[in-house]
Amino acid sequence: MAKKKFSKDWIHQHINDPYVKLAQQKGYRARAAFKLTEILDAEKLLRPGQVVVDLGATPGSWSQVVRERLKGAGGEIHGRIIALDMLPMEPIAGVEFIQGDFREDSVLRQLEETLQGQSVDLVISDMAPNLSGVGVADAARIQHVCDLALEFSASHLRPEGALIVKAFHGSGFSQIVDAFRQQFRRVVERKPQASRDKSSETFLVGRGLK
Rank of each mutant, 00 (worst) to 15 (best):
H78L: 14
Q116T: 06
A33C: 08
D126K: 00
R47D: 09
I124E: 01
S125P: 09
A139D: 03
M86L: 15
I142W: 07
S125H: 04
I39H: 02
N130V: 12
V52D: 03
I82L: 12
I39A: 03
G74V: 08
S119G: 13
I82E: 01
A42Q: 13
R103E: 13
G135I: 13
M86K: 15
R67A: 15
T37G: 00
L111S: 09
P59R: 07
P48V: 06
V120A: 05
S61E: 04
R47F: 11
M86I: 15
E113W: 10
I142P: 02
G133L: 11
K35S: 07
L84S: 08
A57K: 00
A140S: 12
A93V: 11
M89V: 03
K44R: 12
V107T: 15
P91Y: 02
V120W: 07
H78C: 03
L40N: 05
Q116A: 15
L70R: 10
V53C: 11
A57S: 13
M127N: 01
G60A: 07
I98Y: 12
E90I: 09
E113T: 12
R47K: 15
L84H: 08
R103W: 00
S119L: 15
L111G: 08
A73M: 10
G100Y: 09
L131T: 14
L84Y: 10
R141V: 05
R109D: 15
A83W: 00
P59I: 08
E96T: 12
K44T: 09
R141T: 03
L55K: 02
G135N: 11
V53G: 07
A57T: 02
Q118F: 09
F34W: 06
L84P: 07
R69D: 05
K44P: 00
V66Q: 04
T114M: 13
L87M: 14
Q116L: 11
G117F: 10
L122I: 06
G100W: 09
Q118R: 15
D105L: 14
L40K: 03
L87F: 09
A128E: 02
R69N: 09
V66D: 07
A83S: 13
Q110V: 07
M127F: 07
E43F: 03
